[in-house]
Design a protein around this nucleic acid. Structure first.
Lengths: 338, 338
DNA sequence: ATGAAAGCGCTAACAC
DNA sequence: GTGTTAGCGCTTTCAT
């Protein structure tokens, strides 16, 4: 394998000049650049990225710590993030944390070993009480989601309360009053579940309706379809009438629709359903799912841009908090509005 | 940041001994190991992975080139591969190729730059005619899927023909004779589409049935749900009776079910549907989808093990071809067998 | 079972 | 605009 010194010899220049050419250093005579590139081609030279990384201390790789890619929200988010990174010449090392504390702590340690320059971190197991773990990490970190907050790190998140309130309002506007919630968690974390429940509660309160505990569907084992179906079945089994459902993500909503239809409920006539996330599947369910688009593409783009700016020193001194705009996407699972 | 020399000084040993301890070299006196580990803890030392990589020439990172993670099959496959790699102490750099030739060629070039030690490659745009591109790459490559074949590289794949034949037989056994196919491609590649069509054709031929071209649903724009719905609608619009559907993946099948139900067909009574892949969604559709489980977990495990063995020199000299076993998972979209 | 010396291939810092 | 020098922090090689 030829090295930079071989290229330099062949081109009749120094290794540093070859390095300059290959790094895009601008002040180089055109004739020199051409000579160097010709030598590169003739030798079939490919730069040894590991030597460059070692010497420069920058890998050009950022970590992405998410619970799991099989969940459509994270799979689609990962695609958006990989694309945003690619456009900036960054590679991404994905570390699925499996919803575990150890997995997330391991992801936080990784950049210290210098394999990645910074981290995009979507916590699911760590809690608000662990926020101090994000201080003085020694590398740039961008927090995603709403599991924890810190005034000391960059954070990109979504309008959880507003989204859930808008979803609930949509059902209330359609005259629904027995609105179940799917996706409650017993654990007292500051995560999406609590925020989305707050939106639900606020929407009801604004119309003077109190929360009926029999309408709360619990999904402590994860926001998968199966748990959505189970939680919906639990609510129906409790014997309470239901004419609307706010699910805390689309997978839960699709599972809930399944449970409703198995029990002979018609959607949206008997029960109207709203999800959260706008995953691709939401377009093709039967009926298609009305849902909250949390602005996923914007989240990916802003998060990567922010991390990139931190790495290049282009970001502001103060930590940035970016909240993407949500919007409701109306489809067949809710009645058409007049 | 402390270096290995700092740890060595503190522990009263040489840098090499520290290196030996941290690399798991077995022949080290227990007392020495303890002294070294104590020094590591006291200094809060973390090894500089980039220096290790640079010197050793091995990154411990393998590339995974797949079309996109948003497609559930690839998202779930990626999770399985990441887990199999994690168990072996390997990191994975995912490179979505976006179904493009350039994306796939870029992925093939990446290991030459030494950022990854080897590559797991699931081609979608390259074709059989490009197989020579896989020769003499200078790094270990494991091919996934059936887009291209080569006798010169390791290959892990699935029983495409057998799976599609079994899916078709299941419908034939149920008395269905007007069986549509969803997922035909016009491009003459050696991919899954052609193999699965072969299985379909063989199953029909075994019963003396010829293929009716009006029953072929084309999905050249990708195997997404929307295209499955569109292809199914095209077949129905052609005015031919349909009592069964073999879809070449689950997303197409779910889209086809949507189109069938929109047009008032009952599943499985009017039309029975079988998919391919056994993605998680297949369990929660309405009705739940009968599908071919291609052995995805086995594919991930074997592919990573094979690449790992190549990197450590433990693999056999000859290229390995591993074909995972398929099995049919019967659910509500096909009639119950007596 | 441990140590000493060498050097991987590149870029930072500075010289000219 | 380009060259010189030095050295990043580890592992390899070889010695003991």
């Amino acid at each position: 394998m030829p090295t930079m010194a071989d290229v330099a010899r062949r081109a009749g220049v120094s290794a540093k000049t070859v390095s300059n050419v290959l790094s895009g250093y601008p002040y180089i005579r055109e004739s020199t650049r051409e000579r160097v590139m010709a030598a590169v081609d003739e030798l079939g030279y490919e730069i040894n990225v590991t030597a460059r990384i070692f010497r420069s201390g920058r890998t050009g790789v950022v970590g992405l710590a998410v619970p799991e890619l099989g969940q459509p929200y994270f799979g689609e988010l990962a695609d958006e993030i990989l694309e945003a990174a690619r456009r900036r010449g960054l590679h991404v090392l994905i570390q699925p944390t499996g919803f575990t504390r150890e997995g997330e702590l391991a992801a936080l340690r990784e950049p210290r070993r210098k394999l990645v320059d910074g981290l995009l971190f979507s916590p699911a197991a760590l809690e608000q009480a662990d926020a101090h773990l994000l201080d003085d990490l020694g590398y740039p970190l961008v927090l995603l989601g709403e599991q924890m907050f810190s005034t000391r790190v960059d954070h990109v998140t979504m309008q959880n309360v507003e989204g859930a309130r808008a979803a609930t309002d949509l059902l209330l506007d359609a005259g629904r009053r027995q609105i179940a919630v799917i996706g409650m968690l017993h654990s007292p974390t500051a995560g999406s579940s609590n925020l989305r429940f707050t939106g639900y509660r606020e929407a009801l309160a604004a119309r003077g309706i109190t929360v009926d505990p029999r309408l709360l569907g619990w999904a402590d084992d994860g926001w998968h379809r199966g748990n959505g179906a189970r939680a919906m079945a639990d609510v129906l089994d409790a014997g309470v009438e239901v004419d609307g459902v706010v699910a805390f993500n689309d997978a839960l909503a699709l599972g809930a629709m399944y449970a409703l239809q198995v029990r002979g409920r018609s959607i949206p006539d008997d029960v109207a359903v709203v999800g959260f996330d706008d995953i691709e599947d939401a377009q093709y369910s039967m009926p298609a799912l009305t849902t909250v688009d949390p602005g996923r593409r914007d989240i990916a783009e802003v998060a990567v841009a922010l991390l990139h700016d931190r790495l290049t020193g282009a970001a502001p001194a103060e930590p940035v908090l970016h909240v993407a705009d949500m919007r409701i996407v109306e489809r067949g699972s809710t009645p058409t509005r007049r």
